[in-house]
Nucleic acid binder design. Structure first.
Lengths: 227, 227
DNA sequence: AGCAAAGGTTAAAAAAATGTAAAAATGCGA
DNA sequence: TCGCATTTTTACATTTTTTTAACCTTTGCT
């Protein structure tokens, strides 16, 4: 599922330029044109990274930075005016993760975005491989191996199984699964989940008695492990 | 194994401060108090990163930077005086990897050190030659040898194959490939990748059953090796 | 038991992704 | 600048996945 970037910037030329590059790079982008809207957009959009101009209408970048930091450890990159070294210090004290001076090189900015995201990922490493009794899921190679045999599996099924198995015994509602596997912008029928579960069960049937895809009646599904 | 940092700095207050923080961060630290000693210390210490002041006794930072660059691609971070933007230009032309202006925030400097080290790790480690069963790719000479026969291949195809084969079994999305092979600033259609894959497949068809270019439906492509 | 709501199953429709060929554009050396 | 090789775009056919919708079965409750 793609990452989200919130751009807080009043100059629409800069903002659209960034939208272009980040969009191409696989980000979902939202633009907040002033400091007042930034906070509401942040809550709504739940971005993975924030690009934050300092000179903003309504509420300045420092304030926005502090507001966001008070509720989230999301990486923040400040866009500062050239040569303002005091901004730099200020920004790092406010909890920003990095800063770039305007006019900035887009290439450099993109590199820094990837850098802060990598840094966060390194802090909370997302394991892309799972291994249970007779079940191996590898989301790097997109391979599902059941009882030693490689099973050809469509991507949605794979991601669904991976998501469930990542939190064994935890129940997910259909809507949670649609949000977390299909993406927050998916608006289809929740029965879709049932169909995918059924297809997964066919592939996994009778392989192991240590785990299974279990229906929790009236709630949702879970990857149940016994022991 | 811990990394080594060489600090070339005549102000012992700054140097010791850096030793303290870098030491805490797991670096082995050596301090060269002037440009003359820097080169000898460099040869002796073989650091993984160099922090280089510009204003130095005996021999200035530019000269030291050039000397080091002539013998090594080690990351160099320049410590420049405040506001001297010409230093920045100069430094990057001399082959420095980054710069920070004094007075600097230690937290920031540490972050930048990690950044340049990551960058080097990402750039360098790739062997420019690859060899799988009946397949030899050499990106130094741009030669592709399949089953002992040299196959005339355009550069983009070669780079694409090389990139895929460099991480066998890992799936790359089309956008990843465009970023990593074509460059982050490429804005073309992702179907371009498909066309290159097809041409590569023509050239590689039926050569070996130990590997192939595999489509991962809904995700991307991978260089799959069986074993 | 009987009812309503939830879940299972299935097949067909719809949507999305890919393979392929050919045309168009680009870049580069003669 | 021309001509050629490479790269990119476009269009269309084909394949595969995903979604929808219908119908059937199970569950929980009175």
């Amino acid at each position: 599922m793609s990452k989200r970037a919130l751009i807080v910037e009043d100059d629409s030329n800069i903002a659209e330029l960034l939208r272009l590059y980040l969009g191409k790079d696989g980000f979902e982008v939202m633009i907040a044109p002033d400091g007042g809207k930034a906070e509401a957009d942040f809550d709504l959009f739940q971005p993975d990274v924030v690009l934050l101009d300092i000179m903003l209408p309504v509420k300045d970048g420092w304030q926005v930075c502090r507001d966001i930091r008070s509720k989230s450890m999301v990486p923040i990159i400040m866009l500062t005016a050239k040569g303002e070294t005091s901004d730099k210090i200020n920004g790092l004290e406010m909890g920003a993760d990095d800063y770039v001076t305007k006019p900035f090189d887009v290439k450099e900015l993109i590199a820094r975005i990837h850098a802060v995201l990598r840094r966060k990922d390194a802090d909370a490493p997302v394991e892309k491989k799972l291994n249970y009794d007779k079940l191996v899921i590898n989301l790097d190679s997109y391979e599902l191996v059941v009882d030693g045999k490689k099973i050809d599996t469509p991507p949605k099924e794979m991601e669904l199984l991976f998501h469930l198995a990542s939190s064994p015994n935890r129940v997910f509602t259909r809507n949670q699964l649609l949000d977390e596997v299909w993406g927050f912008d998916y608006f289809g029928d929740s029965r879709t989940v049932d169909v995918h579960i059924k297809r997964l069960r066919e592939k996994l049937e009778g392989v192991s008695d240590k785990w299974c895809l279990k229906t929790v009646w009236g709630v949702g599904y879970k990857f149940e492990v016994t022991e």
